[in-house]
């Protein structure tokens, strides 16, 4: 059958031969069996939620049940549409097994908390409690997200720029290295959080102190890796550029920096991880806003549903930031990929 082999080729192009998911074998059928199973598992969530009354007093059980039903319906429709959806269909097909597992997990969670009450409260709230947080505490949670994002972006950007400039300077100039190197060695390995008490009385506001700490946590790995990147540029690159009439400034901008770029991105990645840790700690200790503060506040009131809800948002933000960084890297470093050879 020519159509089936064509669609198989398309599937391979899409995800690569190494990551074939179990669902892909079935996605070529007009109706995806895995999609139907996913639909069923989310319908199961609805069924469990509506089967009997809650053990505790939860206000959003019905919303939760119908929400799951909407997911089930959507999965069902997409499964019927199958191959006609093209790329979106492939995207969905690749993720259906996860959708099934998520549905089963949610149903189980619902069962052992709200329906059977096997897990102790307030530590283990049911899923509808988290939904309640998202729906009813939207304002406060949203404001916290905004505060965190603002703080993170400001601190990270400052740290990345300072790290980049310092790294290039000490990688390029021997005398800059002489002065900066010992300082870097003395301050760098110290966890940025150790500066917390000092930073909070040295800086006029807890916000500026946090910016300083996040920038510090970011700048160290960015500096070290930019420096090692610049230092490892082959001298033949400089020879070539010099014989073509390059000035030192040209050598830095057009040879050293692009050649060091792969190292720099490792530094930016490490800096991102370190800065998340500092952000949360800073918000818990001093800043009166942000997700870290929200977590602290929720714990103080034993509002564990709020805590879990905030943790999920935080995790999505962090992984989103890393995904974004990787996307930028893949774009800028596309020249590294050695695929086609003539």
């Amino acid at each position: 059958m020519p159509t089936s082999s064509a669609s198989r080729a398309a599937t391979f192009d899409e995800t690569g031969p190494t990551e074939t998911s179990p669902a892909q074998a079935v996605s070529r059928l007009p109706v995806s069996g895995w999609g139907i199973a996913a639909s069923a598992s989310w319908l199961g969530v609805t069924a469990v939620s509506l089967a009997r009354d809650d053990v505790g007093d939860w206000s959003r059980t019905a919303t939760f049940a119908y929400g799951a039903a909407v997911v089930a319906l959507a999965a069902f429709v997409v499964s019927l549409a199958g191959a006609r959806l093209g790329q979106a269909g492939t995207w969905f097909a690749h993720r259906t097994p996860w959708l099934i597992v998520l549905g089963l997990g949610l149903a189980l969670w619902e069962l052992v908390t709200a329906k059977l009450g096997w897990l102790p409260l307030p530590f283990f709230p049911p899923p509808q409690a988290l939904l309640e947080v998202y729906l009813d505490d939207f304002g406060k949670l949203g404001a916290s997200v905004l505060a965190s994002v603002k703080l993170q972006i400001s601190g990270y950007a400052i740290g990345a720029v300072i790290g980049f400039l310092t790294g290039v300077s000490i990688g390029w100039s021997r005398s800059a290295g002489y002065w900066v190197h010992p300082v870097l060695r003395f301050i760098g390995p110290l966890p940025a959080t150790a500066w917390l008490p000092v930073a909070f009385f040295l800086f006029p506001s807890s916000w500026s102190a946090s910016i300083f700490l996040i920038a510090l946590a970011t700048a160290f790995p960015v500096t070290v890796l930019t420096w090692s990147g610049v230092a490892s540029v082959p001298s033949s690159y400089y020879d070539v550029a010099r014989t073509l009439g390059a000035t030192p400034w040209f050598l830095i901008r057009k040879v050293a920096v692009p050649a060091a770029m792969p190292h720099m991105f490792v530094g930016l990645f490490m800096g991102l991880g370190a800065s998340f840790a500092v952000l949360v700690v800073a918000e818990m200790m001093g800043v009166k806003a942000g997700l870290g503060w929200y977590l602290q506040w929720a714990q103080g009131w034993a509002a564990y549903a709020n805590m879990y809800a905030a943790l999920i948002v935080m995790s999505l933000l962090c992984s989103g930031a890393i995904t974004l960084l990787f996307k930028v890297r893949d774009r800028l470093l596309s020249w590294q990929k050695g695929v086609v050879k003539w």
Partner: peptide
């Protein structure tokens, strides 16, 4: 101008941009 044993092209530049290196630097 020197042509070395290794081509020493800058991997992040296209063929054309590599050739344009001298004029760009000057």
């Amino acid at each position: 101008v020197v042509v070395f044993q290794d081509p020493t092209l800058f991997p992040w530049r296209t063929v054309r941009d590599n050739v344009a290196l001298g004029p760009e630097a000057q």
